[in-house]
């Protein structure tokens, strides 16, 4: 086998040394920094993009939070307005009701006073009528003209008794 022929050990080892050392130097100074650089660039780009995505996501979340805050605020405001106007309406209707009640009560009172006055007047009329009736009745029956004041006293007494 040619592999075990020592004649060509020396040249093979020599050229192995030369080529391997040359390859090592070229690899470590030229090829590997190049490939490594490409890979690093890509990694950096990916990391950058991930960072950017995370930042955008945070921004979006902040915007959502602001939006929700605004929504909650306006909802609270709407409720407050609703409550306020309900309160105002209730107060207004209460005042109006009270006003109406007062007016009605005053009218009732005035009506009652009028009724009482009318009643007194009517009673006074009754007495006058009774005096007249008694006077004319006594005149017709007895032919005696009685004194008005006497008749008035008798009528008052009779009305006092009849009550």
């Amino acid at each position: 086998m040619p592999q075990f022929d020592p004649t060509f050990f020396a040249p093979q080892l020599f050229w192995l040394l030369v080529t391997f050392v040359v390859l090592y130097i070229l690899m470590s100074t030229l090829a590997m920094p190049k490939i490594g650089g490409v890979l690093e660039d890509r990694q950096r780009k990916i990391d950058d993009n991930l960072d950017k995505a995370a930042k955008l996501k945070a921004e979006a979340e902040a915007a959502i939070a602001v939006y929700e805050q605004a929504l909650a605020d306006s909802r609270a405001q709407a409720q407050k307005i609703l409550r306020d106007s309900a309160d105002a309406l209730a107060r207004q209707s209460e005042a109006r009701q009270k006003d109406l009640g007062d007016r009605l009560a005053a009218q009732i009172k005035a009506g009652e006073a009028r009724i009482a006055a009318a009643k007194d007047q009517a009673l006074a009329h009754v007495r006058d009528v009774a005096v007249d009736v008694a006077k004319s009745a006594a005149g017709k029956l007895t032919g005696v003209s009685l004194d008005d004041t006497k008749i008035a006293g008798a009528v008052a007494a009779a009305m006092q008794e009849g009550r």
Binding site: T7, F8, A10, P11, Q12, F14, W15, T19
Partner: peptide
């Protein structure tokens, strides 16, 4: 012997 051979 450092001949340039087919191996080299």
């Amino acid at each position: 012997n450092i001949s340039f051979t087919n191996s080299a």
